Computed example of a mutant assay.
Amino acid sequence: MGRIRLVTWNINSVRARLDSVEKLVDKYNPDVICFQETKVQDHMFPGKFFHEQGYSHHAIAGQKSYNGVAVMSRVPLLNIDRRDWCAKGDARHVEVTLPGNIQLHNFYVPAGGDEPDPAINDKFAHKLDFLDEMTAWSGDLPKDSRAILVGDLNIAPYESDVWSHKKLLKVVSHTPIECEKMNTLMQAHDWFDVMRHFVPEPERLYSWWSYRARDWRAADKGRRLDHVWTSPDLKDSMTSMAVLEDARGWNKPSDHAPVMVEITI
């Protein structure tokens, strides 16, 4: 039996934060890194840098300046696939097969803009449509699949996933309709919330802190926007989870902290 250490991280421009990536690798030594918001076209992705770090297996889906997801791995990646969600042509999903026949899905769900009204905000309408399409897709997955879903899903579903439930009820990422759609999505495949397994409610659990706070750690106005889910057949294989909050304080940081899990295979 082996072990895979996996990190998911909204890097907020991979080329701008290679120093942070190198620090992550030196300190935590993950086997697989799933990035969101890489903001780079495929032909400009810094593959040589990752190869020099020992990540010789790559699965990338990028576009110019926006979105973008990637899986960097020290273990072989098979059956690489990309899907165009909502027929938008956005790079928001990449799928690979890890050793142990584990299907890994790396997602970047639309943020949804500022106004939580789909009638006047096309970005929020897109987010809701994206979640509906993910729900239909989840329902079609084989019930006995060995699947892991990770990424920046841009929703903090529980009261303890945000710094103030009352103040964020009308703020995109914690509105009732988003939380309800995420719950429906999870039920469609009986997804298992790995982060909340290791840090049960009502303990606070965040992975994102706004750039707007002068001292993000002192203010601690966080949200849990990043997630790790598994299908039922894999939940007992998850042996640990940690939000790497120290990375949020590194030089020129992403506003997201990496989330790390360990999986036995």
Results as ranks from 00 to 15, higher is better:
A119C: 06
L98H: 07
T97L: 14
G139W: 09
K143C: 08
D114P: 05
A119I: 01
F130W: 11
P116K: 08
V94G: 06
D114I: 13
E95M: 15
A136W: 00
D132A: 01
Y108G: 01
M134Y: 02
A136S: 03
H105D: 03
D129G: 04
A147L: 12
I120L: 08
N121I: 02
N101T: 12
D117S: 03
I102A: 06
L128S: 02
N101V: 07
K127W: 02
D144V: 10
D129I: 01
E115Q: 05
D122E: 14
E115K: 11
V96P: 12
F124H: 10
G112W: 08
T97K: 14
D129L: 08
I120V: 15
S145V: 10
P116L: 04
T97I: 14
L104D: 13
D140M: 12
D117V: 05
A147F: 04
V94H: 04
D132V: 00
G112Q: 10
P116S: 04
V94M: 05
V94E: 07
A136E: 03
I102L: 11
H126S: 05
F107S: 02
D144Q: 14
N121V: 04
Q103L: 15
S138M: 14
P99C: 13
A147D: 10
P110N: 03
D129Y: 01
E115A: 03
D140L: 12
A125W: 10
T97P: 04
N121K: 07
H126W: 13
W137C: 00
L104F: 11
P110K: 02
L128A: 02
A111G: 04
S138W: 07
L141H: 05
